[in-house]
Design a protein around this nucleic acid. Structure first.
Lengths: 177, 177
DNA sequence: CCGATTTCAGTAAGACTGATATTA
DNA sequence: CTAATATCAGTCATACTGAAATCG
């Protein structure tokens, strides 16, 4: 997970942009942005994984656990979770297996549709969710060098990207009251 | 690679932020930024992988190929490549194996230090590098919804993040002349 | 019979650990 | 002898495909 940490003497992205321009391969703004996204995700992701690992969680497991934690009845069909987390059905099975082995969730049969199975978060799962969330927050999700305004700018830029990629449907912004 | 594509009715990140605030778990700006980074990388990464896959390349292989393509003599020691690409030595071995199998690079012995091996890009490798680079650029690296100014803003924000994480050493900005 | 839901078996790429051979 | 370099064997988490079982 993550990548080897070696401090480089020059910014490799700036260098890639320079090379790109020298060959006349078109505007490098999007190249630099794409490369930056990859590195930034690795930075934030590595920090998150480092926090989660001693808790016995991976990113996938943590995401599923939080999804269940915030669900209305602490319980969701596996298929719904696959949609929400945007992962394959087989990956859902794997992740549910892992979390169930850890006692953080349990599989419960759907009362009416006997094809479907639901996952339900356990008390231990709730405790774990609160603990991992608090630890991640205390670590500022690995991006604490950005202040709140910069983080907000980042979110706004990336929201346009996500919207353009069809990640979700545009809707009225809901202010927390 | 990538994740299952299902258009959601609401922005899952906005929802996570709302849940976060309701529990009083502190300022959600960094949460939203971290989640956005993950999704954005997935969007750009999936687009890149979709372009590279029909060429027989993965991200790792493509990065190594471009590194060699832009190197002064088309040739680098494996260890140096590991530093530059920030991957483990064993991963370098794997990637070099794959590219060599494809005839895009060859292993050449180091003339003086017989411990080290160098990878050299072949003519076929150069053609492939130019082809994959051109195709990725034509695809705007999967982030074409952003205009050049937005891409530049993104790069600037993420540069601060990378710098803070010790990705590279700050140095004088080099304007392309 | 058709389609939805979940699971299983198997494959692949990647990151890692630990051990090993070679050589500076 | 010690450190550096590269490789190998094996493990792990993840993503995927194709097939199967169950059931509406």
């Amino acid at each position: 997970m993550g990548r080897r940490q070696v401090r480089l003497a020059v910014d490799p992205i700036a260098e890639a942009v320079r090379n790109w321009q020298e060959r006349g391969w078109g505007s490098p703004a999007h190249l630099a942005a794409a490369l930056s996204l990859g590195r930034a995700e690795d930075i934030a992701g590595s920090a998150a994984r480092a926090v989660l690992e001693p808790l016995g969680l991976t990113m996938s497991r943590h995401e599923m656990l939080m999804l269940l934690y915030f669900s209305v009845h602490g319980e969701l069909p596996l298929g719904k979770m696959g949609d929400r987390l945007m992962v394959h059905a087989t990956s859902v099975t794997n992740t549910v297996d892992a979390l169930e082995r850890q006692g953080l969730i349990t599989r419960v049969p759907h009362p009416t549709d006997r094809r479907t199975t639901r996952a339900r978060i356990t008390d231990a799962g709730r405790e774990m969710a609160e603990r991992s969330a608090a630890t991640l927050a205390a670590d500022t999700f690995g991006i604490g060098v950005l202040d709140e305004e910069e983080a907000a700018q980042l979110v706004a830029l990336l929201r346009k990207l996500r919207l353009g990629a069809g990640d979700f449907i545009e809707s009225e912004p809901v202010d927390a009251d």
